[in-house]
Design a protein around this nucleic acid. Sequence first.
DNA 1: TAACTTTTCGTGTACGCACACACAAATATA
DNA 2: TATATTTGTGTGTGCGTACACGAAAAGTTA
Lengths: 358, 358
Amino acid sequence: MITIKDIAKEAKVSEGTVDRVIHNRGGVSKKTQARIEKILEYHNFSVNPVASALAMKNKHFIAALIPEHNDSDLFWKSPYLGILKGADDVKSFGVKVKNFTFNQYDPNSYLNTFHELLKTKPTAVIMVPNFSKETKLIVSKLESLNIPYLFLNIDIDGFNNEAFVGQDSYMAGYIAGKLMHLSIPKHSTFLIIQARHNITKNNAVSNRIKGFNDFFLKNDIHSKTQTLKIENLNNSLETREKINLYLKQHPEIEGIFVPSSRIYIVVDCISTNYLKNLKLIGFDNTPQNIECLKNDSVSFLISQKPFEQGYESVRLLTDYLKNKKSLLNNKIYLPIDILTKENVDYNERNKFVFENVN
Amino acid sequence: MITIKDIAKEAKVSEGTVDRVIHNRGGVSKKTQARIEKILEYHNFSVNPVASALAMKNKHFIAALIPEHNDSDLFWKSPYLGILKGADDVKSFGVKVKNFTFNQYDPNSYLNTFHELLKTKPTAVIMVPNFSKETKLIVSKLESLNIPYLFLNIDIDGFNNEAFVGQDSYMAGYIAGKLMHLSIPKHSTFLIIQARHNITKNNAVSNRIKGFNDFFLKNDIHSKTQTLKIENLNNSLETREKINLYLKQHPEIEGIFVPSSRIYIVVDCISTNYLKNLKLIGFDNTPQNIECLKNDSVSFLISQKPFEQGYESVRLLTDYLKNKKSLLNNKIYLPIDILTKENVDYNERNKFVFENVN
DNA sequence: TAACTTTTCGTGTACGCACACACAAATATA
DNA sequence: TATATTTGTGTGTGCGTACACGAAAAGTTA
């Protein structure tokens, strides 16, 4: 590895001079500067981030503001672990990372956790903009403090976030449509089960639905979709009754699309005699959903790669902080993974390994 | 932040002694050790990973022995790029990586390139064990020199390789079977097109075929498969004639499975009027294959994630070299990606971004 | 033009912190 | 007393950062 010392020797100047050229700190004649730059370029030099970090004494600190996870909502465990892995990878570059979690159904928790986060004086923030009104407050605070921020998983427009890391929801829904059609090739009727609280809040869900429907439209397939909205999609008697009643009244339905991570609840609520004649497609590789995939109650899951979302966010922001230049690509769309019973274990490996190590 | 120097001062010993206690390197009396440990615990000390990384910069050198890529065989470009990216990531830890490429059809090239590689005195080797007889020679040489080695992409047993990084070929074939069945749900006949030279050499291909057939067997689906062996699966008049003749003589065939990365050749050789009534499934996200996916001549591709194979290998070996302990998991199976027209671009992003930067 | 000041340009090096080796001192064994 | 063995010390190294300071060039004044 080529070092500043090497460059200095080659340019017949001291290390300090090279350093000043690298960091545009001035005090170098144009002639020497040009000479040094040429040598730097020739050797494709880049500073050793480890040594740099040591000399600079850790000045970077990334704080992450994400929903908390628990047994009933394991989705957010993956970004959390991904962030941890990212943290592990970048700690040698002098970047510290800390997670702050909030209750995803409580705007106050979101704000309060943010204020706690702010006390730790982060140099950059990874956040899941879960509530739009509160996000405005948070963002304006961050901007007034000149703290760059990045959106994770939820993409909302109209902000100066450095980047968005997540999935193209529309295309993911489109692919779900394709898989549904593949599972039931003849013209048929499908049911989309949507939680009420998602309708206003979660843009991803409506984009997925749009993509799902568009698949049939654009490919001129005369399958129909119906939508069932459920106030609160939890594992309750009410949900159970609503779904089964709907299926009873609509025997034409052959497939169900759940554009959220709650498909395991739907599976649990549908009576066995209905379930065995239905094809189900849903989102997200949570343990419960994977269980459904493995016992054949769900045909496909589309993964948002939540672990990778967390990991990439940390890596990306680290890069941004070190190089002090904007990210070229504002929207970082991760792959749209198609999970089946057969490949799901291989896709989980990464996360699994990391979870065990820690 | 508390440092080793601080601990040393408090324990009235030198920094070196503290360091030896921290790393259990011995040569410290029980009494002093206990005293130092108590102080470490009291201050909840942990080493500064930045300084540690800088100091540990012991010159490791990983050499990779992989097939060369060119316009007619782009498959090996991805592992190559993955290795480059890995190299970039680990270079600040004092690990150098260099690629050595050989002609994948020429055992002599394999051996000769290896000898060239050996001259550079690597501390570890990533290799694609393309020929079994020559691999034995190479491996015995490496073992006599105490150089650890890892197999990339091709898995052969009976060696003391530190790990294998690649895909579970059997399961990948099994999934191909599933996708084929999904594309053509009724009982049908499928053709497997196999290159002759693969039959002896490439175990992956036969495992894929086994998996493919097993899908139908295990799920009690009465679809049939036939196999067409072609001496040299290149884009020749001979190949063209053979395939089309076969299809003419076997009009019952509705799907074609190509268990290698050569599906684009098959597509090119099949007459349009046959092609439009066939479903094709193949392996590997090479540019030509992706083109086929996008223009609808191929329904699915299964990716081996070759870029990740290269990247992971480097990361893994680096970890191994730094921590001087065996890898826990001998077989590192990467995810089995199902690629369609719709998601392929998202899956390529990673590689694409890296390719452009360099 | 000599004598001086200011600016420009460049040098040298201490520092951040852990690591590991060479070596010294202390203690034990023969 | 001479020789091993154990225990502990001192220091160079990795590499970039930034500051103090020296040298040379340019500018100013009498």
